[in-house]
Computed example of a mutant assay.
Amino acid sequence: MGVSNAPLLRVEGLRTLFSTSAGDIAAVDGVSLEVPRGKTLGIVGESGCGKSMLSLSIMGLVPRPGRVGAGRVLLEDINLTGLTPAGMRAVRGAGIAMIFQEPMTSLNPVHTVGDQIVEAMRAHDAGASEAELRKRAIDALRRVRIPSPERRFGEYPHQLSGGMRQRVMIAMALACRPRLLIADEPTTALDVTVQAQILDLLRDLQAETGMSVILITHDLGVVAEMADEVAVMYAGRVVERGTARDIFEDPQHPYTIGLLGSIPRIEEDRERLLSIDGSVPPPFALPQGCRFHPRCPFAIRACTEKDPPLRELSPGHQAACIRAPVEAVVECLV
C-alpha cells in the first residue's frame, strides 16, 4: 500500500477571534495553508503577525476570551476544530506536539524534567508501568543527545542550561512520536552555537521519524536552512506562500522583499541594510485596504481601497498583492 500524497495537515480559512468591548477582533484572519508529509513548513513574520496564535489555534489552546470563529484544521481526515476537549487532548502529543517559545516558563519548576516527560507519556499510555515509562523517558533524553540522561532525569529545570532545557522540551514533544511537530521559535535566546545544535537535532529527528514540522520563527536564516515550504504572515494573514526557493529567489510580496532585504549577505558589499518603516498594526486598528500599504514602498491608491486575496503567480507560489509580479524586486534587493 503506497504512502498518500495528501498533505498531513490542512488549515482552511481559519479565523481566531477575541471578544472585546468594541466587538470581535481577529488575531488570525482567514489563514489557509498545508503541511506536506515528512516536510517542513516555515512560518515567518515580525512579532505580532499572528504566528504563535495560529499555532495555538491548531493545537486547540487559544486562551480565553479567544476562540476559533471560522474555518477548519484537518489532520489527515480529522477535523480538529470539531473535536470535544477530551478528543483534542487525545490528539495532542500523539497526533500533534508543540515546542513552546521559552522552555523555562513552559517547564514546571517544581517537578523534575523526567517526571514531566513521564506525565506526557502516561497521558497516552495509561497501562504502562512506572518502570517502563521511566526507561522510555530516559531513552527520549538520550535521543535528543542529553549527556548522562539517567542523572538528568532527576534534575529540575533550573539545574539545566538553556540549550539543555530546549532539548528536554523536544524530548517531551516527541515522547509519543507525533506525526506533526510545531516548533514555535525553538532557538529563541540561544547562542548561535547552541542554535545550530538544536536545528541539527530537529533535522536528524525528522529524518529518523518521518514527522512533518511547522517551524515558526522571525529568523529567515533558520527558515532558509530548515524549510521546504514557506508561508509569510502579516497582520493575521498569509501574504505570500510557496517553496523555499520561490520565497528566497523570487519574492513577490513587498513585505517579503523587505524582510529579505534586511538580511546581511556575506557575498554582497552593502553599506546599509534595508529596513521596513513603521510596525505591524494591532488587530483592532487595521488600515483600510491592504494591511501592509502604510509601510509599502510600492503602494498606490488602489492599495488603500481593497485588501487583496492570495492569488497564484506560478504553480504553488501565491502572493496577496495587486502589483505582483513586482517588477522592482531586483532593484529593491541590491
Rank of each mutant, 00 (worst) to 15 (best):
I170Y: 04
V223K: 13
E185F: 07
A171D: 05
C176G: 04
V239G: 03
V222R: 04
L205R: 03
E225Q: 15
R241K: 15
D219Q: 01
R241M: 15
R203N: 06
V232Q: 05
D246N: 13
I182S: 00
Q197P: 12
S212C: 06
G221H: 12
R165H: 10
G221P: 06
A244S: 15
M172S: 09
A171N: 08
A171M: 12
V238M: 04
L220D: 09
M172R: 09
A224C: 14
I214G: 00
L202T: 01
G236I: 00
T188R: 15
G210A: 09
L190Q: 05
M169G: 04
I214D: 11
L205K: 02
E185P: 06
A173G: 00
R237P: 12
L220K: 09
R165V: 10
E229D: 13
T209V: 07
D246V: 10
I182H: 00
R179A: 15
V223P: 09
H218T: 01
D228N: 13
E229N: 12
A189D: 02
V213S: 08
Q197Y: 07
L174M: 13
V232R: 03
M164E: 11
M164Y: 10
A227I: 02
D191F: 07
D191S: 04
A227S: 11
L201R: 10
Q206N: 03
T188M: 12
T217Y: 00
T188H: 06
L220A: 01
D228F: 05
D191I: 09
A231E: 04
T209R: 15
E208V: 13
L181D: 03
L205Q: 04
D184T: 06
G221C: 13
V232N: 11
A207S: 13
T217I: 05
Q197G: 01
V168D: 11
Q195Y: 00
I216R: 07
A175K: 07
V213F: 11
R177A: 12
E240W: 08
E225H: 14
P186D: 06
L180P: 08
P186C: 10
T217F: 05
V194R: 04
L201T: 07
A244Y: 12
E229Y: 08
G242T: 07
L220M: 12
V213I: 15
E240T: 11
V222P: 01
I182L: 03
M211I: 05
R203Y: 02
R167T: 09
D246C: 14
I216N: 08
A207L: 11
R165L: 11
M233T: 04
V238D: 05
T217A: 03
T188Y: 07
L180F: 05
M233A: 09
D228H: 14
G210V: 07
L199I: 14
A173Q: 00
A235N: 06
L199Y: 14
D228Y: 00
D246Q: 10
L174I: 01
V213D: 10
V192Q: 14
R245G: 11
V238I: 14
Q197W: 11
V192K: 15
A224E: 15
C176E: 03
C176P: 06
P178Y: 12
A196K: 04
A171G: 08
T217W: 02
A231T: 07
V213C: 13
P178L: 09
R167G: 01
L180D: 08
M226N: 11
D204I: 00
D246W: 10
D191Q: 05
G210L: 03
L180H: 04
D228G: 05
L199W: 14
A196E: 03
L220N: 11
R177C: 09
T243C: 07
H218Q: 13
R179D: 12
M164D: 05
